[in-house]
Design a protein around this nucleic acid. Structure first.
Lengths: 110, 110
DNA sequence: CATATTAATCGTAATATTACGATTAATATT
DNA sequence: AATATTAATCGTAATATTACGATTAATATG
């Protein structure tokens, strides 16, 4: 048995978990930071920047693309990745809303 | 091979990934939402609330505790869990800072 | 056309995660 | 003291993740 029981939860919970999962690995955070720093997308330079192999970077990029946080445009031989700002904002709003709940609804115990 | 190459990344990247991982499963988000809603900590009622077994809930609680986002106080037979507000704020600041970068440093491409 | 570069994918392996039932240790209740 | 309740842990199993090298398909360059 085991492994993901995605249904039975609310859409918000599932979406929030999806975005959180996308940034739940240091390599993916490093990739996103790199994409933000170098505004002009950048393609395979990510591999030079990170301490992991090309195939592993490619996998992380695939996951980030699947989450929606980034998109990739083919540009000749190379691929140009960049933040998908619309999705990024959605993630920001969802995560922000989640973490601000505790400030509004102060927990009084323990 | 495989599995975690945690070093070689910055402390911030690793910490951010840690918090993100903590909330990367709908069950854990549901648990946190429940703990926030019911201010008075609550103990085993989480099991009744969620569509997963007691042992699985216990595992998720263990992970949440490991991340620091919650703490658990023994209260007789039962255990009282609640948000660790200090850690929660730290996570909020880290995540908030991360997602706001793109707003300041607008990406122009693709 | 031959060769180089780029990035995805495949195959493989190690490890982590998710989940459950069963057991256990602890405190409460009868 | 016997029994019930609570929540952690153990054992087990399925699946997912992380990682790498090798291969592949594509475009670019000589």
């Amino acid at each position: 048995m085991g492994a993901s029981k995605t249904s039975e939860y609310t859409k918000k919970e599932i979406e929030l978990a999806k975005y959180a999962k996308a940034i739940s690995h240091p390599a993916r955070i490093a990739i996103l930071n790199f994409l933000i720093k170098k505004k002009s997308c950048i393609c395979g330079d990510i591999v030079d920047e990170l301490p992991i192999s090309q195939s592993t970077v490619s996998q992380h990029l695939k996951e980030l693309k699947a989450s929606g946080l980034i998109k990739g445009n083919i540009d000749g031989v190379s691929v140009c990745y960049c933040i998908d700002e619309k999705e990024w904002k959605k993630a920001n709003v969802l995560l922000g809303g989640f973490f601000e709940k505790i400030i509004i609804n102060k927990s009084v115990c323990c």
